[in-house]
Each structure stands twice: as C-alpha cells, then as structure tokens.
Amino acid sequence: MLDTADLLTSDSGLLPLELPGREVGRARVGARSQTHQGTNDQAQLVARAQAGDERALRVIYERHERQVRGHLFRLLGPDSELDDLVQIVFSRAFAAIDRFEGKAAISTWLYRITANTTHNLLRQRFRRERMRQAVRAFNIGREADRVQPSKVEARDEAQRLLEQLSPDLRQTFVLYHYEGLTLQEISTILGRPVSTIGDRLTRARKKLRKIVCEAPHGLG
C-alpha cells in the first residue's frame, strides 16, 4: 500500500509536462535553458493571442489539440461528444485568454479548463452509471460463462470499471496514471492541496481494487 509520501516520490515512467517550477524526476534535467526559452516563447504567444492575433490562437490550438483530445479520450473513453468537447475547451480558453496571467504553462491551464468542463458531465454520467449497475446486477448469472475477450473488449471493460469511480477520484486517477502528472501538478490543476490529491489517489486505487474484485464477469 502506498501512502502520500510514497506517491510523491514514486515514478512510473510518466510523461513530461511543461510546468514552470515543477519537481525534478521526470526527464526534465538539463533542459533549463530550453525551459526559459519556452517560457519566453509562451509569453510572446499569449501576448499575441491576447491582442487578438488569430495566428497565435491557431498555434496554441495546433500545439495542444492532441493533449486536450487525448485527455478527454482517456477520461471519457470513446465518446460521440468528444469532438464537441474539444471545441468547447478551446473556445472557453480563447474567450478567457485575456485573463490568462502566464504563471502556469498553457498546458496546465488547458488541463484545468478541461477538468472544469468535464466535471458536471462526469457527475451526470456517474449517477447514470450507478442506476445501470443496479439493473446489471440482475444479469450477472447470464454472463458468468463469458468467453475470453479481445484486447479491445478488455479496454472497453476497463473503461466501464473506471466509470464506476466518482468524478473526483476518476479525474485524479486519469491525470496521475494516464497523463503522467505529478501530485503537485494535479494540485495546481484542480486547485486542491497536495494532501487531498494524494488521498484521492489512494482512495481511487482502493476503490478500483474493490470494483475489480467485485466485477461480475472476468477477463481472464
């Protein structure tokens, strides 16, 4: 079992993220000058975007579109509203670009907007999922002798299991395990103390273990 301190120091081969002042330990060593240059570049880009330069907005979109789409996909799974949500996230970001102070990286800021945009949606779906679960309990027996699923089905099954996490736990789990962010970064994005984020992650893991144990049909 990992505690918060364990989580803070653990490293599971995560992705790099552009966040000024982030902790060392995730392939950022030796890139200080590049980071400085990148910060200047970002400041210029944001200044142009705030002045209404459409080209700057396009650059922001082209640099971060994959990040936003990927995060939404990993959070929601295959979803018919995915493209619409990408547009909503970027349009909210562009509409609020005047208020972006540049203290955090654009990617962090977009993660925050994505989290805010999807929060209500996740809550609605979570409630719906609980209703479905009650109905599904009647069908457990029928699916007991299910055949070995393919990898795609396993992925869908994993997504269904993930959907049973509450929105806060799910958001934290996805940001940590799928997006590769540190607890500090997640804390900045969600606007909660690091200890809260660590606690949520621990609860998410416990809950997932329980969900997997109780899953009515096996994959193996």
């Binding site: 990993r74 799928y178 997932l208 994959l219």
Partner: peptide, 11 residues
C-alpha cells in the same frame, strides 16, 4: 490481474 492491468494500462 488482467482486469486491473487493463485499468492501469494507458489507452
């Protein structure tokens, strides 16, 4: 194991 691994595997 397979179920949990599928959950932890990054899409």
């Amino acid at each position: 194991h397979h179920r949990l691994e599928a959950v932890y595997r990054r899409p």
